[in-house]
Simulated scan of single mutants.
Amino acid sequence: MRKVTVQDVAALAGVSPATVSRVLNGGSVKEDLASRTYAAIETLGYEIKTKKKHNISREHAFIGVIVPDISSPFYSEIVSGILKEALLYQYEVIIKSSEGSQYKEKECLEQLSHLPLHALIYYPMATIDYLYEIDIYKQIAIVIGGRENISTPFSHVYFNNEKAGYLATKYLTKLGKKRIYYLGPIHELEKPITSIQELLSLEEEPNKGFYVSLKRLEGYKKALSEENIPFDLELVSLCGYTWQDGYEAARAIITKMLDVDAIIAVNDMVATGMLKFLKEQGIRIPEDLSIIGYDNRSIAEISEPPLTTIDQNAYELGRECVLSAMKQLQEHKIESRSLDINLVIRHSTAATNL
């Protein structure tokens, strides 16, 4: 079988070979181009070879990476960070996308198990039981990315989602907001958790760290409690991740006539979809209603108005996962690391006029 080349990847992604090269070396590339490039890499099975930066003598080895959606700008940034850091340690990186399927996730684990892996960086859907079924994963460094402390034998690197929910809510209360709608992300399962009651039932589960929605909600509830604002289930729901999901969520919120004065959205894309619907209804942002997004993607800066948002550095998350894997390999150190987040204040939020 003919070996897949950079030119093949470029042709499938609809980009230039130079763009593919920049992506592979962790260079600056527009989000959509990087996403298309990573999707082509995964589709074609292109093996990413990193350049040698250290004179380390050891056998040829790989870092395996499994993410839920390689075409997602969020995960493509994570992969860029992984590639950049792996470059320093002479590892080849093999990327697999589970495409939001637990079955495909298991298939990815089986495929990677046939390679001489030294480490696996794994962003699981809802269970890591498959890891225990394959012998190689008992012998190599494992880093669970994006999930909080779901299994003690492995290292974890994740964002502080509770703090994110807290910061967003606390800021809105300081602006005088009392009716703050929390729109959490539907957990990425083949059978998604779509009701807030179902999500709340998981609060005592040992693996609740899987659920980003739940951690953000804990921060939301804490901030409300500190301001003596009662928690109201009517002001909480779950949503998908797209612009259209945001548009429809805004329609549902307005239809319920809940007298909302602020919304915390799933991500920046959802927030921009909400902005579109609300403007169509003559609702002014931020004069009538404030909105906060998540991720601090480029769309947050160019939306109208520019979005106040939670900044999560996906690129840094990827880098830190590699560093955590190296600590396991070199120091036999298992760690749990929470990466900090920040609130970026722009023009989609404003104080309530009393």
Rank of each mutant, 00 (worst) to 15 (best):
S57D: 15
H60Q: 09
A61S: 04
F62H: 12
I63M: 09
G64H: 06
V65R: 05
V65S: 06
I66R: 11
V67W: 09
D69N: 13
I70V: 14
I70K: 02
I70T: 08
S72A: 13
S72G: 13
P73L: 09
P73G: 04
S76R: 02
S76V: 11
G81Y: 01
G81Q: 03
L83D: 02
L83P: 01
K84S: 09
A86V: 14
L87S: 11
Y89V: 06
E92L: 00
E92H: 07
V93A: 07
I94W: 08
I95G: 05
K96Y: 11
S98E: 06
E99K: 05
G100P: 10
G100N: 03
G100F: 04
Y103E: 15
Y103R: 14
K104F: 09
K104M: 13
E105I: 03
L109Q: 12
L109N: 12
L112H: 00
S113F: 05
H114I: 07
H114D: 11
L115V: 07
L115D: 04
L115H: 01
L115Q: 06
P116W: 14
P116S: 14
P116H: 14
P116A: 15
L117Y: 10
L117S: 10
L117H: 09
H118A: 12
H118Q: 12
A119C: 00
I121P: 04
Y123R: 10
A126T: 13
A126L: 14
T127W: 00
T127A: 08
